[in-house]
Computed example of a mutant assay.
Amino acid sequence: MTMIRRFGLLLAALAVVLPGPARAFWEYGHETVAAIALADVRPTTRLAIRRLLRAAPLLETPTCPARTLAEASVWPDCVKTLGPRFSYAASWHYQDVDICKPFALKPACRDGNCVSAQITRNLALLKDRAVPVRERLMALIFVVHFVGDLHQPLHAGEHDDAGGNRVRAGYGIAAGRINLHMVWDGYLAERAISTPPAGAAGLLAAATPAERAAMAAGSVEDWSRENWEVARDAVYAPVIADPCGAEPARVQLDEARIRAAIPVLRAQVLRGGLRLARLLDEALG
């Protein structure tokens, strides 16, 4: 078990008793999206990724390594601990598109400060061979992480509640200072990805080539709309009778609701990995 994985499990345990928002998709979600993408890209793309990752020392973030795509997938969260150095990227991990209004991406992405706009921006930097290697490496890292973020539904849609961070939640027998965002970021992601067939290989094996191709299709805006719909229909609707009314004091995900949500989140992770692979092939293949 890697040090990053141990840290992710420690965060999951501490979240029951400690306040504060969860990290995006925690480690397991991001690492699995990255693993699916790495398995699905062309060999030439895989080689280009490895060449870029060799430049990781240029980032000068020894406490936040990026030597592998798994490490790179959580680097944008790790560097939040480094103070103001990377604070410019704080708003790039999500987009607050209101589930109670018609889908509108532009108001949530003013000046490009949202996750979908930053996927597009960093993909362009990654494609440009004239960009210095350090900046291309950072672009690779951001694309990998932000595609994962976009497929965590509460990074793509919400209703004036900080992406579910202000909605207190119970998750099975777990209680304490948990919120709805934490559930979908961590607890449910851990359970869904580890449900057999587990991990990146299990998720890939569960889909036919035709299904994978269909999942990988579309644009970043298409994916934004789809994930906004998942937030509305699969995150809020099952636990809040009127998601567009008064904010509930607390919601509860019992075992039946958890089981119903597992295939939803498994599909999200698989879509994220396959779409990331397609973008990386377009940029580096």
Rank of each mutant, 00 (worst) to 15 (best):
D149P: 09
R177V: 14
S194Y: 06
L154S: 13
N179A: 09
L154Q: 13
L154R: 04
L154Y: 01
H155I: 00
I173V: 14
I178A: 02
N165D: 11
H181F: 01
E158C: 04
A156N: 01
G148E: 10
I173Q: 15
G186Q: 10
Y187C: 03
V183I: 15
L180G: 11
Y171K: 07
H159T: 05
G172V: 08
A175R: 15
Y171M: 10
N179P: 10
G170L: 14
H151G: 06
G157D: 02
H181T: 08
W184S: 12
I173R: 15
L150G: 11
D161Y: 00
A156S: 15
A174F: 15
G172R: 06
M182I: 11
F146A: 14
E158D: 07
A174S: 12
D160S: 13
P153L: 05
H155Y: 00
D185F: 01
A174Y: 12
G157W: 03
Q152R: 05
R191D: 02
A192T: 06
A198D: 12
D149G: 09
N179G: 11
A189H: 02
R177G: 05
M182R: 09
T195C: 01
H159Q: 08
A156I: 07
L188G: 01
R168G: 14
T195D: 08
I178F: 07
G170V: 10
H151V: 11
W184C: 11
G164M: 00
A174M: 14
D149M: 09
P196S: 10
G186H: 05
G157F: 05
H151A: 06
L188S: 08
Y187K: 00
S194R: 13
R177W: 14
H159A: 01
G148P: 02
R168E: 08
I173W: 13
A169M: 04
G172F: 08
L188P: 09
P197L: 00
G170W: 11
P197A: 11
D160H: 11
R168F: 09
A198F: 01
A162P: 02
T195W: 03
A169E: 09
Y187A: 04
N165Q: 14
A189R: 02
G199Q: 00
R177D: 12
G163P: 03
G163Q: 03
G176S: 12
D161C: 08
L188N: 04
L154A: 05
F146D: 11
Y171Q: 12
W184E: 04
G163N: 08
R177P: 10
A175W: 10
P197K: 00
A198G: 14
A162S: 09
N179L: 09
G170Q: 10
D185K: 02
G199N: 09
H159Y: 05
G163K: 01
G163T: 07
A174C: 13
A189G: 10
D161Q: 04
Q152Y: 07
G148S: 13
M182D: 14
Q152N: 11
F146L: 15
V167M: 10
F146R: 15
G170N: 15
V183L: 06
R191A: 06
S194A: 11
G164Q: 04
Q152T: 15
Y187F: 15
H181S: 11
N179M: 06
R168T: 11
I178N: 10
G172L: 06
S194I: 06
Y187D: 02
L188K: 03
M182Y: 15
H155E: 14
R168Q: 13
E158W: 01
H181M: 03
I193V: 15
R166V: 10
W184K: 04
A198Y: 05
